[in-house]
């Protein structure tokens, strides 16, 4: 899941305060699951904004609308038309969703209400943790299912570095486990330490230009 967190209220206020009618659009996908941009969070943000603008005597009407996913055109049927009557749109989707929405209505300003922070998992209720950097060349099969790109502060491929602290913590923080300490522990448990005895050569970074993917079965459909 893509995890995002809400921007500070002052930053959001600053973005929308010069408009008369603003539509705050929620997303029923990832940002709803991580409690940052679903219908509930849209309502909460609007309530906060209304109060703040009232105090500042700024006349601004802010309405809400949530669609199932902001990253797919199939869900825009009602929204496309609804957006027309507003001066600006606030999006509570991830960065991908905000851009998708912006492309639907290029004549009007669209603002992000969230900061998209990572691809992660639910550690517990309301607790999320980054686990993937979308690097485009997955090495998890060799590293015992623990990602060195994401979980090692230096993204080392032949770790651990010399900074691993007491009880296998990362030099960056006593609260962060050293990824390579964990990789070593797990591979040892699986009797697969030979996986990391050989040098992993410099990798070909594949996430340095914009990625696109057309699945094999659809290639003909999109052929020019």
């Amino acid at each position: 899941m893509i995890v995002a967190e809400r921007k500070p209220i002052d930053e959001i206020k600053e973005m929308v305060k010069s408009f008369k009618r603003v539509l705050n659009v929620g997303c029923g996908g990832c940002t709803s699951i991580c409690h940052s941009g679903g219908q509930k969070e849209v309502d909460l943000l609007n309530e906060e904004l209304n109060k703040a603008f009232e105090l500042d005597h700024i006349p601004l009407q802010i309405d809400s609308f949530t669609i199932e996913r902001q990253c797919n055109a199939d869900f825009y049927l009602l929204l496309d038309e609804k957006m027309q009557s507003y001066d600006a749109v606030l999006s509570m989707a991830c960065g991908a969703g905000v851009q998708f929405l912006s492309d639907r209505i290029p004549e009007k300003p669209v603002f992000p209400a969230l900061n998209t922070i990572f691809v992660g998992v639910d550690r517990d209720l309301g607790w999320f943790e980054e686990n993937c950097r979308s690097c485009g060349e997955c090495v998890l099969g060799k590293t015992g299912g623990i990602c060195p790109v994401t979980r090692c502060a230096k993204s080392l491929f032949n770790g651990p570095c010399g900074g691993t602290a007491h009880e296998g913590k990362c030099e960056v923080s006593k609260d962060t486990p050293c990824a390579w300490y964990e990789i070593h522990k797990r591979l040892k448990q699986q009797n697969r330490l030979e996986n990391i005895l050989l040098i992993t050569p410099a990798r070909e970074w594949r996430n340095q230009t914009r990625g696109t993917l057309v699945q094999e079965a659809y290639k003909e459909r999109y052929a020019k």
Partner: peptide
């Protein structure tokens, strides 16, 4: 060397490069 993490320095919010690691550097 890999290098001390940027968080320890005087520009802690810089983007760390780590394109290759110290072993890959030796090899290079």
């Amino acid at each position: 060397l890999s290098g001390d993490h940027q968080q320890f320095g005087n520009h802690p919010s810089t983007k760390g490069v780590f394109d290759i690691d110290s072993i890959q550097l030796i090899h290079m």
